[in-house]
Structures are given as structure tokens and as C-alpha cells.
Design a protein around this nucleic acid. Structure first.
Length: 857
RNA sequence: GCCCGGAUGGCGGAAUUGGCAGACGCGCUAGCUUCAGGAGCUAGUGUCGGCAACGACGUGCAGGUUCAAGUCCUGUUCCGGGCACCA
């Protein structure tokens, strides 16, 4: 008879819910543990088998640590703003709120059917006005802050205003310097515009990826996702909200070092931030007062700079271009402006045009031509380079195409046959740098540049400011009003949340504004304070916004006065374990680290970093080892698996498939395997008629079974702690295989085994626990204690080798002395056969492991 | 192109520090049970040879270090992921 998982699972899910078994409150008598899952976007497709993988892993970990006496915070919620619901609304005119609510209901039902021990009283939903009130509040905190680079901290914008009133810009180290009187005499609008350049969130005209069909801009990192789906994305300059994440580049880089994260994820974040150290060098333009600033990581090669290249968008281009080159340059500029970065990169041959202008190489004093080419990017460094073809492959390629001078300034090794030489070597053709190797030459030239006022050491980052606005309806409204005098005004805190207006239709506005622009009653306002007419910001926030801080809201989800109480925050933060997909390795995990640091600087959170330990669950492939997709017809629906084998089997199988972080294929046969295992467990305890099996007896366990049990306690405990669930399960299988062979099973030990199994198969375990006579949930029972003395083997098998090959095995008492082991080996018949009368050159003995006799023949 | 990660039976995978390769599960084979199918139970299952004892070979490939290598070193091939004109 099979155990009735459907009945049992329903029963215990109702029990846990009815008894609020997993409701968590602060309990300072216990050590805290905060375990977080990346909350899902509730798509219309319902839960995917990939979701339960991470969720089961954290659930096992939480159940285990609860039984070991920790106070565990383990919440779940919904990342529910997003484009799919809005696109569905465009097609059907069904309000995205309705779609979202339905999807959430499905997800909630599916997640609950897995028996995960969440504290559901803490559920959050990013689309709930009571939640996004605080997303908007944090937005305003960023708006009302600036980054004081002198102390490397975000500070309230008032501190900047105070400083300007008292000292002007003197201490800020700006090129545009003025005194306090000048500040005070500025108009309201002038002050507003000046401060805007410092705020952590600001509006800027930037070239963006505009998608006409979606009616919105996309972040660079979102572009591939939509172009793959067949949408067209074009570049155009638009006014957009930005977040000054670049101010935090160094801290995001530095603080990542102390995190227990997968090395690959840390590496990706490092690459994304893209720190590079080098120098800025200024090149005077012949016949022009301006100087072209370049960034280079190889200032030591400056003597080899035989031409310069400006990005097509560089502000100097039109000014320095000679009359006869003008039309070609302009044509080139307009061509490039239409191309996206991806298109530019896709071109095989580098293109460019001569401006007719010349610059002076500050080191060699030679006149060098200035070109425009789109292999130089405006957004990186200074948007201009000194081209050093001798030591740079791109510059070499360009020089070859346009017959420009190539001068080696590093001596390549004699056997070097390539073009540009990037390696180390003595400097040549480089005046006072000659014979110095790269590192020394870098130091010397940097000093020289600084002394001569033509350059200085600098550090640059690839990281760009975060494009924060979207032209969508289904996102958090940005709580800003544009007043008729051209200034912006943030909403007061008690005017939050700024709720989304109701709309008749969810079509794009037809302009570059979001559909919110069509809600005229909502958009047009009069400022209470000044009486000025104003227009609400119609952009909304990107989906990342809500997920940037949700982990803080879980700590205090119903607080109406604060986003999160400070004392509670101190009690629970930081997050001890965070599990989610590797696809969020950079974006979500970098954006939330950024917001967290702002909140830290402003004194709202107590830790520098939110997520101390991070792991990714690996993708689950279809049974055919290909990515699951509808079109391939290899999608596994968790509902079907749970209906057929039960949630415990689903959980157990997903953990048994292999290491958590690995990519691994689904196997229905494999689910059957763990289902058989659970049935075997059931039959160890329950007779055919449903009563407790008679084989359970109040007898002393045999030493062998007791030993195996304690080995199992050790292995399962260690494996859960290190998230190696697959091997923990196989150890339990070994135990069950042994226990099955016995006619009488010691009851106390078998009870303890139920506890070991309970984090993995909680419904089955609860049912067995109850059948064993217990009246309440085992969720807070004490985890079985490993007793080393009970796990020790009395006898042990020793491997006998001759010349490293196993020739025999013997059973000996544990810790048998080494000489005795040698003696045993030499007496062994098969060993003697292989010694074959040869001279014994060496005897290697490893205690409790092996003897290896080395013979020469 | 660059940077990470990986490669172990028919399949998923296991193997603290170099110390019995293949735990556990799937599949397969045989037997018991059953009217039958299924389920359950028992035994076997890396390859080759052998009734067996046992022997040879065996962790992508080629070398090396070592008494001993899946594990360490050098080179190489393939697969997966990320980045990609970042000066």
C-alpha cells in the first residue's frame, strides 16, 4: 500500500497554517538567522520547476536550523510590477492589477503546496501601494542626497546647501568656483539646477534604447532580451531619470571582497564595475586653445601615440574639423549616431574619418593627426584616445586601414611575430623612458605628466549610471512634480504613496511619454506651497526598484510609519543566506547593494552589505537535457508532479538530482525513485492497516545500527549546513536500506531518524511523528545530536598494496599499530604472490587505511 | 578574442588532506510473489578475459611528479557560462 501523500500533505499544511507554526518574532534568547529566497515575478505561466529548487534548499536549511534552536526569519513575497502584465493589458485591456492578482494567487497556491516553512504573515507585494509607498520614499531619499567624495559617503542634500551658503564651492574642488555670496544671490531656479547636478538621482539627456513597439526605453542590459524576441530597439537621446551608482563604484568593488558569494558572481560584478587604473593626458590642438584629454592605461607608451581618435559624439569634433573635412565628418557622425553600441561592435572593419586637425604629442612634441572613429566610445574614459598602434591591436588595425604611422615603443622579444605588442619589454623610441620596463616607465611618465601639468594618474570605471525611468504604466510612479518655472519638486512624505491613476486604456501614449500622460486629471496639479501649476512626472520606475529593498520590508512588513523599524533591522540584518538564480548576478545584486549603501550612509540600516552568503541554484533542464521551453514540449509542471508523487517527493527529488548549483536534467524516473524511498520509510513505521508497525520495539539498538545512525546524523547535519543535500539524502537512503533488513527496530532511534528526515520531507515526517505518539509538530523538536563515540568503527578494512596496486584487504581492529599492519601484509597470500621474491625496497603504512609494499624485481 | 567553471559506468551523480574509483539513485539482468500488468522483495550490474579464485585495463586526450594521482604540475581538445572595440 502506498502512503496517502495527498491527504497527509493537506493535513499538515493546514496544521502549520492553523497553528501559525512558522510565524516568527524577535526572540533575543535565540541566535537569529535570516534566510532569503529571491522572490518571484508571478508570471502567467505559473510556477516553474526551477523555483522549488532554491526554495526547497532554503526551506531545508531553515527547518534544520530551527530544530537546532535558531530563531529563523524566512519570508516570501512577490516582485509583481513588470512588462508582461502590461503587455497583456495592451492586448486585452484587462487591468494589470487584476492579472497580477490572479497570477499571485496561482503562485501562492503552488508555493504553499510545497510545504515551505515561510512566515506568511510577512508576505510583501511590490505593487501594493502600502509597499511602493516606501519604494517611492527611498527614491526621494536618493533624490535628497548627494555623494560627498571627500568622505566617500552619501549625505543629505541640505549639507551641501549649508556648505554652499557658508563656503561656496571652495572646499568642493570644482572647476567652477564661487563664494557663499554668489550662492546666496542665485535665483531659486539657479540653485535648483546647481543642486540637481549633485543629487543621487537626477534627470539627464542621454542616448537611450527606445523600443517603439513596447513604447518604452530599455536599459542596456535589457536590450538583448527583447531583441531576441524580435523587437526593434533604436538609439535616441531622451531625458531620463538616472541614479548615480557610479559614485559608489569603489565601495561596491571593495566591499564585495568580504562576501561569501560564488567566485563567478563576484568576478562578474568586478568586471561590470570595470575598474582600471591609468592616466589622463592632455594633448594641445594645433591652432586651438583647447586640449584633448585622453584616458590611457598605458601612459608609458605615449611616445608611440602617432594619431588621436575622438568618439563621433565628442564635443570638440565640430569645432576642430577643418572646412574641407567638414562634410565627411558630419556624414560620419550622423551615420554613427543611428547605430547602437552592439551594431558598432558587430562591424568587422574599423571605420573613421580625418578631421583635418592636428594635435601635439606632449612627450614627443610631434604633430599627430586627429581622427574621428566610432571604435572610440564617448561613454568610457574621456571619449578620446591617443592611438598607440605599436602597442594596441585596435589602433594597429586602424592605422593599417588608413595608412597611419606605426611606431613601436616597447621592444618585443626577438621571436615575436605579431603586430601590436602588448607584453612587457624595454621602452624604445621613448626619450627619457628608454630601457625602462612597463611598470617603471608608467611611474616615471606619470610623475613627468604631473610635473609638467599635462596629465595625472586617474582611475576610471566601466560602470555607468543607472537608467532608472521607464515609459510604462505598471510600475511605481516617480513622486516628482515638474513646476512651471522649470524646477522639480519632490512629494512630501505624507503625500505618499503616489498611487497609479486608473486608465481607460493601456495603450502606449503615442509619444515618448508613458500611458500616465493620458491621465490628465492625475498629471496636472497645483503646488500647494507656491501656487504654481505643475505636471507630475509620467515615467515610472524599473522593475528592479521594488526588489532593491524588499528584504528590509520583510523585517517589518506592516509598519505604516517607517519602511522598516531601526531596532528590528538591527535584530535581523544582515541576511545570512540568500539563494536565487545566477541571472541576477549583476543587476539585481548590484542595484540592491547600491541602495543598501545609500541607506547605510543615511543611517537607516546598520550593515554595509545586505547579503552575506549567496548561492545560485542551477538551471533544471528538460528530460532531454535541453532548456525547458513550451516550443520544445519538455516543460515539467510542478502541479503535475505534486499531484502524482506528492510535494515531499518533489522536494526530495529536486535536492537529490545533484549539487544545488549545477545545471541538471529532470528525470521522471528519478522522482519515482525518491517516491519509492519515501514509501519504504513509511513502511518502516506503519503497518498495512495504518497502525504503528509491530517491528518498532523498545529494544536497544545493535551497535552496528547505532553506529550507522550516528554516522548518518553527522553526515546529514554537515551536508545541510554546507548545502550538499544530494549526499545527505543518499546517506539517509543507506540508513533506511539497513533498517529495512531488520525484523525489530529500536523505537527511540527510529524516532530520531524521523527528525533527520523532516527538513526534507516535512509532511511525511510530521505524520510519522504523530503516529509515534507525539501530539505537536516536530518543527521545533531538538535536532539529533551526533555522539562521536557511538559512531566509531571497532574494526576497519585495510588495503594491502604491492607497488601501489590493491592485492588484498584485511579486517583489523581500529588503530592497529603500523608494524602489525606490515606483518599482516607480508603474511597475506596474495600479497606474497605479487612480491614474487623481489627485494622489498620500501614499506608505506597509512594508519587505518593501507599498507603499500614496494618491491624491486 | 578575453575571463571563469567543467569533463568520472548505459544515465544523474559520489569520492575531507593525494591513500579501496564508481557511494546513493535511475536503468538493465535474473529470481521470488502475482491470473496478468504493475507494485514489492532478493541478488547481480565499469570494461575485457574467466565457472570461479583471480588477472588486465579504466576518471576527455598527451606527458610529468609520487610508494600511491579523479585529486598536484605542464600542454592540449571539447562542453557550459559570462564579457566583448572599455583605450
Amino acid at each position: 500500500m502506498k502512503y496517502d501523500f495527498a491527504k497527509i500533505e493537506k493535513k499538515w499544511q493546514e496544521y502549520w497554517e492553523g497553528n501559525a507554526t512558522f510565524k516568527t518574532d524577535i526572540d533575543r534568547s535565540k541566535k537569529k538567522l535570516y534566510v532569503l529566497d529571491m522572490f518571484p515575478y508571478p508570471s502567467g505561466a505559473g510556477l516553474h520547476v526551477g523555483h522549488p529548487e532554491g526554495y526547497t534548499a532554503t526551506d531545508i536549511y531553515c527547518r534544520f536550523e530551527r530544530m537546532r534552536g535558531l530563531n529563523v526569519l524566512h519570508p516570501m513575497g512577490w516582485d509583481a510590477f513588470g512588462l508582461p502584465a502590461e503587455r497583456f493589458a495592451m492586448q486585452t485591456n484587462i487591468h494589470p492589477r487584476l492579472t497580477t492578482e490572479q497570477n499571485i494567487s496561482t503562485f501562492r497556491r503552488q508555493i504553499k503546496m510545497l510545504g515551505l516553512s515561510y512566515d506568511w504573515s510577512r508576505e510583501v507585494n511590490t505593487t501594493d501601494p502600502q509597499y511602493y509607498k516606501w519604494t517611492q520614499w527611498i527614491f526621494l531619499k536618493l533624490y535628497d542626497s548627494w555623494y560627498d567624495s571627500r568622505i566617500q559617503r552619501a549625505m543629505p542634500i541640505e549639507t551641501l546647501e549649508n556648505e554652499l551658503e557658508n563656503h561656496g564651492t571652495k572646499k568642493l574642488g570644482l572647476s567652477d568656483s564661487f563664494g557663499p555670496e554668489a550662492w546666496i544671490s542665485k535665483s531659486r531656479k539657479e540653485k535648483h539646477d546647481f543642486l540637481a547636478a549633485f543629487r543621487l538621482t537626477y534627470v539627464s539627456e542621454v542616448p537611450v534604447n527606445w523600443c517603439e513597439a513596447l513604447g518604452t526605453v530599455l536599459a542596456n542590459e535589457e536590450v538583448p532580451e527583447w531583441t531576441e524576441k524580435g523587437y526593434t530597439v533604436e538609439r535616441r537621446p531622451m531625458k531620463q531619470w538616472m541614479m548615480r551608482i557610479t559614485a559608489f563604484a569603489e565601495r561596491l568593488l571593495q566591499d564585495a571582497e568580504g562576501l561569501d558569494w560564488p567566485a563567478s558572481t563576484l568576478e562578474m560584478q568586478r568586471n561590470w564595475i570595470g575598474k582600471s587604473e591609468g592616466a589622463e593626458i592632455e594633448f594641445p590642438i594645433k591652432g586651438d586653445k583647447r586640449r584633448i584629454k585622453v584616458f590611457t592605461t598605458r601612459p608609458d607608451t605615449v611616445f608611440g601615440a602617432t594619431f588621436m581618435v575622438l568618439a563621433p559624439e565628442h564635443p570638440f569634433v565640430s569645432a576642430i574639423t577643418s572646412i574641407d573635412c567638414r562634410s565627411k565628418v558630419q556624414q560620419y557622425q550622423s551615420q554613427s549616431s543611428k547605430k547602437s553600441d552592439i551594431e558598432r561592435g558587430a562591424e568587422k572593419e574599423k571605420s573613421g574619418v580625418f578631421t583635418g586637425a592636428y594635435a601635439i604629442n606632449p612627450a614627443s612634441k610631434k604633430e599627430i593627426p586627429v581622427w574621428v572613429a566610432d571604435y572610440v566610445l564617448m561613454r568610457y574614459g574621456t571619449g578620446a584616445i591617443m592611438a598607440v598602434p605599436g602597442q594596441d591591436e585596435r589602433d594597429w588595425e586602424f592605422a593599417e586601414s588608413y595608412s597611419l604611422d606605426i611606431l613601436r615603443t616597447i621592444q618585443p622579444p626577438a621571436e615575436f611575430e605579431g603586430k601590436a605588442y602588448l607584453g612587457d619589454g624595454p621602452a624604445i623610441n621613448s626619450g627619457f623612458l628608454n630601457e625602462l620596463h612597463v611598470e617603471d616607465a608608467k611611474s616615471k611618465i606619470s610623475e613627468w605628466l604631473e610635473q609638467n601639468g599635462v596629465g595625472r594618474r586617474v582611475v576610471t570605471y566601466k560602470l555607468r549610471d543607472w537608467l532608472f525611468s521607464r515609459q510604462r504604466y505598471w510600475g511605481e510612479p516617480i513622486p516628482i512634480v515638474h513646476l512651471e518655472d522649470g524646477t522639480m519638486k519632490p512629494l512630501a512624505e505624507n503625500d505618499l504613496p503616489l498611487e497609479l491613476p486608473e486608465l481607460e486604456k493601456f495603450q502606449p501614449s503615442g509619444t515618448t511619454e508613458s500611458p500616465l500622460a493620458l491621465a490628465t486629471d492625475w498629471v496636472n496639479v497645483v503646488d500647494r506651497e507656491t501656487g504654481m501649476k505643475g505636471r507630475r512626472e509620467t515615467n515610472t520606475m524599473p522593475q528592479w526598484a521594488g526588489s532593491c529593498w524588499y528584504y528590509l520590508r520583510y523585517i517589518d512588513p506592516h509598519n505604516v510609519g517607517e519602511f522598516c523599524n531601526r531596532e528590528k533591522e538591527k535584530d535581523w540584518m544582515p541576511i545570512d543566506l540568500y539563494i536565487g538564480g545566477a541571472e541576477h548576478a549583476v543587476l539585481h545584486l548590484l542595484y540592491s547593494r547600491f541602495w543598501h549603501k545609500v541607506l547605510y550612509d543615511l543611517g537607516y540600516v546598520s550593515t554595509k552589505e545586505p547579503f552575506m552568503k549567496l548561492r545560485h541554484q542551477g538551471t533544471i533542464l528538460g528530460e532531454d537535457s535541453r532548456k525547458m521551453s513550451k516550443s520544445r514540449g519538455n516543460v515539467i509542471n510542478p502541479d503535475d508532479i505534486v499531484a502524482q508523487y506528492g510535494a515531499d517527493s518533489m522536494r526530495l527529488f529536486e535536492m537529490f538530482m545533484g549539487p544545488l548549483e549545477d545545471v541538471k536534467p529532470w528525470s521522471t524516473k528519478g522522482v519515482e525513485g525518491v517516491y519509492r524511498f519515501l514509501n519504504r520509510v513509511w513502511r518502516l513505521y506503519v503497518a498495512e492497516d495504518g497502525s504503528l508497525d509491530l517491528s518498532l520495539a523498545d529494544v536497544q539498538p545493535s551497535t552496528q545500527l547505532q553506529r550507522l545512525f550516528h554516522q548518518t546524523v553527522k553526515k546529514v547535519s554537515e551536508d545541510i549546513a554546507s548545502l550538499r543535500f544530494n549526499t545527505a539524502i543518499s546517506q539517509m537512503m543507506i540508513f533506511v536500506n539497513e533498517a529495512t533488513k531488520m525484523n525489530q527496530r529500536p523505537r527511540t532511534l527510529m524516532e530520531q531518524f524521523v527528525l533527520l528526515l523532516s527538513p526534507f520531507a516535512p509532511h511525511l515526517a510530521e505524520e510519522l511523528w504523530q503516529k509515534l505518539g507525539h501530539t505537536k509538530s516536530l518543527a521545533y523538536e531538538r535536532w539529533p545530536v551526533f555522539e562521536p563515540e557511538k559512531a566509531i568503527e571497532e574494526t576497519i578494512e585495510i588495503v594491502l598494496q604491492v607497488n601501489g596496486k590493491v592485492r588484498s584487504r584485511v579486517q583489523v581492529p581500529i588503530n592497529t599499530a603500523e608494524p602489525d599492519l606490515v606483518e599482516l601484509a607480508l603474511k597475506d597470500e596474495n600479497v606474497r604472490k605479487h612480491l614474487d621474491g623481489g627485494r622489498i625496497a620500501r614499506k608505506v603504512v597509512v594508519k587505518n587505511k593501507l599498507v603499500n609494499i614496494v618491491v624491486e624485481k
